[in-house]
Design a protein around this nucleic acid. Structure first.
Lengths: 140, 140
DNA sequence: GCCAGAGTACTCGGATAATCCATGTCCGAGTGCGTACGG
DNA sequence: CCGTACGCACTCGGACATGGATTATCCGAGTACTCTGGC
């Protein structure tokens, strides 16, 4: 898409859960913090749940809570969880066999994209959720 | 968005133009190479034209051609031309003043995003269009 | 034969309709608490 | 008083409408080639 804000919302949600500590929060409460719809929260937390970062529980006193220490959650893993295809997508159109460029561009682009995304991940990997939370709490 | 393939298509188009050299090509011919609609080509090349990478000319024997040496076109500039907002977007929802995280997350995320995108750009900056074309032609 | 001129064919660029994905709404399945009853 | 069983309220998860953005179609503006007519 243009560009997606799913990653930003995901980090926001995780930060909120980390801030609350062991209490946990419902999707409605988290949605109020992000000013969005609860279903968006549930979708993103569903992805993060499958990745093992949060645990969602139904029932009367249900809700979500972190399933891992904030210092053990690195932002590159969060991005991978909510954007499994990466941020630089290949065009999936059929290759035109007449055109040399059309035939050979994809492996080349794939290599370039892989290196670029590695750089992105390496940068994000240096920041943990605990670090984000610390900065937020100090700034506020 | 999810992830966008505009950057991939843009590099594909520039590679095709570079491969053709000074001949140039029409949007229809380029669209055949990418297997998409000519209007998509025209839109992307319109952006690249404003950035100074290609020149589009109307008229009977019109078309597009590169306006710069392939060795002078770095992929980070191409990405900036077709994705001016970057790949990691902030969520533009109103901040919930009750929530500490909601109030303080945006500057922190902005800093993290800026560093990550810098890393991405630095990686892409190391690759020029000439390099891409060389690999494509050697592989083919 | 050469030149001038209008005509024409083909291109890009933007405005307008159709399609696709993401968001928002709804409903079902599941769980824990609260209460009422019996021992 | 304590334990148990039932009922209920509240939650997540997925399936179904709706909205916005991207994509595809169409039309206008512009340019270079071409053909015709005149010199």
């Amino acid at each position: 898409m243009p560009t997606s804000s799913r990653f930003a919302v995901a980090v926001h949600l995780l930060s909120a859960l980390a801030h609350l500590g062991g209490e946990g929060a419902t999707s409605a409460a988290l949605a109020a913090s992000v000013n969005t719809n609860p279903v968006v929260v549930r979708r993103l937390l569903g992805l993060l749940s499958r990745a093992g970062f949060v645990a969602g529980r139904g029932g009367r006193s249900g809700g979500y809570e972190l399933a891992r220490e904030p210092s053990k959650i690195r932002l590159d893993a969060v991005l991978a969880a909510v954007e499994p295809d990466g941020v630089l997508a290949m065009h999936e159109n059929a290759t035109n066999r007449v055109c040399l460029v059309s035939c050979g561009i994809k492996p080349v682009l794939g290599h370039v994209f892989a290196k670029a995304e590695d750089a992105l991940r390496s940068s994000l990997r240096r920041t943990t959720l605990a670090e984000v939370l610390r900065r937020v709490e100090n700034a506020g």
